[in-house]
Amino acid sequence: GPREVTMKKGDILTLLNSTNKDWWKVEVNDRQGFVPAAYVKKLDSGTGKELVLALYDYQ
């Protein structure tokens, strides 16, 4: 199956793709996968990378 990404509340993840309104593709610890968009919030990183903050645990 697809590689699952797990996250804990407060984690910072790299946002790869947010074109789908329900599932965003993120990368964390060299793993890529989809997380519910409602579970993360975009951060203003000030760099080229888009980052998101995990609002809830997800696994």
Rank of each mutant, 00 (worst) to 15 (best):
Gly1Trp: 14
Gly1Ala: 12
Pro2Cys: 15
Pro2Glu: 12
Arg3Gln: 14
Arg3Thr: 14
Arg3Trp: 15
Glu4His: 15
Glu4Lys: 13
Val5Ala: 05
Val5Trp: 15
Thr6Leu: 11
Met7Asn: 01
Met7Tyr: 04
Met7Ile: 12
Lys8Leu: 07
Lys8His: 07
Lys8Met: 08
Lys8Pro: 00
Lys8Gly: 04
Lys8Trp: 07
Lys8Arg: 11
Lys8Val: 07
Lys9Leu: 05
Lys9Arg: 11
Gly10Trp: 04
Gly10Phe: 04
Asp11Phe: 04
Asp11Trp: 06
Ile12Cys: 04
Ile12Phe: 05
Ile12Gly: 00
Ile12Met: 05
Ile12Gln: 04
Ile12Val: 11
Leu13Thr: 01
Leu13Trp: 02
Thr14Tyr: 10
Thr14Trp: 10
Leu15Tyr: 02
Leu16Glu: 01
Asn17Trp: 06
Asn17Pro: 03
Asn17Met: 07
Asn17Asp: 15
Asn17Glu: 14
Ser18Met: 09
Thr19Val: 09
Thr19Arg: 08
Asn20Trp: 05
Lys21Ile: 08
Lys21Cys: 07
Lys21Gly: 08
Trp23Lys: 02
Lys25Tyr: 15
Lys25His: 11
Lys25Pro: 01
Val26Lys: 00
Val28Leu: 15
Val28Arg: 09
Val28Thr: 10
Asn29Arg: 09
Asn29Ser: 08
Asn29Leu: 07
Asp30Glu: 10
Asp30Ser: 09
Asp30Ala: 09
Arg31Gln: 14
Arg31His: 12
Arg31Cys: 10
Arg31Phe: 10
Gln32Ser: 10
Gln32Tyr: 11
Phe34Gln: 03
Phe34Gly: 01
Val35Gly: 01
Val35Phe: 01
Val35Met: 02
Pro36Ser: 03
Pro36Arg: 04
Pro36Ala: 04
Ala37Asn: 02
Ala37Glu: 03
Tyr39Ser: 09
Tyr39Thr: 06
Val40Phe: 07
Lys41Cys: 14
Lys42Cys: 06
Lys42Glu: 06
Leu43Met: 09
Asp44Gly: 14
Ser45Ile: 11
Gly46Arg: 07
Gly46Ser: 13
Gly46Val: 13
Thr47Glu: 14
Thr47Gln: 13
Gly48Ile: 08
Gly48Tyr: 07
Gly48Thr: 09
Lys49Thr: 11
Lys49Leu: 12
Lys49Gly: 08
Glu50Phe: 10
Leu51Gln: 10
Val52Tyr: 09
Leu53Cys: 06
Leu53Val: 15
Leu53Ser: 05
Leu53Ile: 15
Ala54Leu: 06
Ala54Ile: 05
Ala54Cys: 10
Ala54Asn: 00
Leu55Arg: 03
Tyr56Met: 12
Tyr56Gln: 14
Asp57Gly: 05
Asp57His: 05
Asp57Lys: 03
Asp57Phe: 05
Tyr58Arg: 01
Gln59Tyr: 13
Gln59Phe: 11
